[in-house]
Amino acid sequence: MKKEEHIMGKIEPAIPFPNSRFVHQQTLKRGRAIRSDQIAGQEIQETVGEIRLDDPRLSCRDVSVFYGDKQALRGINLDIGRHEVFAMIGPSGCGKSTFLRCFNRMNDTISNCRVTGTIMMDGRDINHNETDPVSLRVRVGMVFQKPNPFPKSIWENVAFGPRIHHLAKTKEGLHEIVVKSLQQAGLWDEVKDRLHQAGLGLSGGQQQRLCIARTIAIHPEVILMDEPCSALDPIATGKIEELINTLRKDYTICIVTHSMQQASRISDRTAYFHLGNLVEVGETKKIFINPLHPLTEDYITGRLG
């Protein structure tokens, strides 16, 4: 019944996050929203590198995530800029996916998951109880590790988002959005003749691009990608990376990846996570050429991980 925990998760419009207000006040009371070094009595390394940005799109302060009693993330502080591709790397279980899921509150769907700290998006707290997760997710799209097209036609897959959000008044308008999204996702040429065939009939890479098309069809500001290429072969991976390259001019993209090469190829900035801590943040080139933290260095050189 491990699935049950997922399904059981609730989106409660009235009280979007039971703990957020409390945490929020606590942070305010303490007067400093930047860093707490000691949480739960554990020794925390300071994050190395440049955390802050001017005019960030997303800004996290003191973000911790708990699964039941287990703490998965410890006091993360991080800014993510506009129109940048931000990569998160680290060994398995370091919390990078969990962190990613905080940005569109996907963690709400897991019943025993608790998020503390503040994540501001364009200056507004996304965990605030007036922030609605549904409208948040319109602004923050997400692509998952395994391609998960709905068991519907390609057209329906892309039209799903615009339709529930009433982005188009007419069927023609909807079709326009679908076509544009597919074009943007670089899938149009491959599927234009079979728009009404099942999305599940596409190849893995195509499916993943379909999921990206589905995401950009609702015009998000941020796209979260959770290891989008891990289930794909190198050719399909190359296509996705190309796509990310073209998308960066319109969107902020956060990508979690296991592949350091991928991170170095596509990202502007990179963060290295280790056992729930954010160890180092910096420009990708810097991180890969000259890591400051010994842990980062160990990981990048392959001694760890």
Binding site: I11, N104, T109, V134, L136, R137, V138, K146
Partner: peptide, 13 residues
């Protein structure tokens, strides 16, 4: 579950 996640991520209730 991935289908549900996909739908939630698109902002579906």
């Amino acid at each position: 579950q991935s289908l549900r996640d996909g739908s939630y991520a698109l902002g579906a209730t």
